[in-house]
Amino acid sequence: MKPYQAIPICDRGEPLVPIPRDRFALVQPHPYQALGAPYGNQSPYSLRAGVLAALAEAQDQLQQQRPGWRIQIFDAFRPLAVQRFMVEHTFAEQAQARGWLAEALTPAQRSEVMAEVAQFWAIPSDDPATPPPHSTGAALDITLLTATGDVVNMGSPIDEVSMRSHPSHFAASPTPAEQTFHAHRTLLNQVMVSAGFRRHPNEWWHFSLGDQLWAWLRRQETGSDKFLAHYGRASVDLWVQ
């Protein structure tokens, strides 16, 4: 159990709404759908209504600083089945990277691989009190596009399981290129925080607003226990086509 999963949830009941394609850049094809992740008829490019409104505010802030730049959405809502699929997929990838077969691991090897995966992926839970952040519709993975539509170099790709994914990995680097990566990550974080979001401690690309991780981070910042999660696991009846 992760520390943020102890935060109480008082769900506001806001609907899941589509992220408008004419306002935000969406990665196409969606990377997890391309792997065969089981979305059914649910779109990964959906967020709670209040979260989407805040995302629009963040993009407005971005464009004040970098005219023509846009936020690109890599991933947003994940049904539990997708979260489980992606954890298993990442686990197999990390085992293979060590030269191991996922189906033939010793208990010690399995624990080693899962500990690494769990730094970046929330283990799926059917308990409504401990939903994975992306399954609430309040978390999303993003990067930036320039005015010419080029993806901004952040120094590592989204979902990379390595130390390079940590937001401040390049902060102390003396290399000009790596300082530029850090500046890009800082810009992304600044515009998202300005709209109320908070960034995952281990992932430069992951932001949330109103889920348990967000509430836990706000408690850490302020020392106050008044912050609760506004969004629990999104159910089918919240879906707006």
Rank of each mutant, 00 (worst) to 15 (best):
R70M: 11
R70C: 09
I71T: 03
I71Q: 01
Q72T: 14
Q72F: 10
F74D: 14
D75C: 13
A76C: 11
F77Y: 15
R78G: 02
P79H: 12
P79I: 03
P79K: 09
L80V: 11
L80H: 07
L80M: 10
A81G: 13
V82D: 01
R84W: 06
R84Q: 15
F85V: 09
M86W: 04
M86N: 07
V87D: 04
V87Y: 15
E88P: 06
H89Y: 11
H89K: 07
H89I: 04
H89Q: 10
F91D: 01
A92L: 08
A92C: 14
A92R: 15
E93W: 04
E93L: 12
Q94F: 08
Q94I: 05
Q96M: 06
A97M: 10
A97T: 05
R98D: 05
W100D: 03
W100Y: 14
L101I: 04
A102Y: 09
E103A: 15
E103F: 12
A104N: 12
A104K: 15
L105V: 06
L105R: 07
T106L: 14
P107M: 11
A108T: 15
A108G: 08
Q109F: 05
R110G: 12
S111Q: 14
S111G: 10
V113E: 03
M114W: 13
A115V: 05
A115L: 11
E116P: 07
V117C: 08
A118K: 07
A118S: 11
Q119Y: 08
F120G: 10
F120V: 11
W121H: 14
W121V: 07
A122R: 05
A122H: 13
I123C: 06
P124R: 03
D126E: 12
D126N: 10
D127M: 09
P128G: 14
P128K: 13
P128V: 04
A129D: 14
P132E: 03
P133T: 08
P133C: 09
H134K: 15
S135M: 05
T136Y: 02
A139M: 08
L140Q: 00
L140V: 03
L140Y: 00
L145P: 03
L145V: 03
T146F: 06
T146A: 05
T146Q: 06
T148V: 11
T148Y: 05
G149I: 01
D150C: 06
V151C: 11
N153I: 02
G155L: 03
G155M: 04
S156V: 14
S156N: 08
S156G: 08
P157A: 04
I158W: 01
D159T: 02
D159E: 02
D159H: 09
E160R: 13
E160A: 05
V161Q: 05
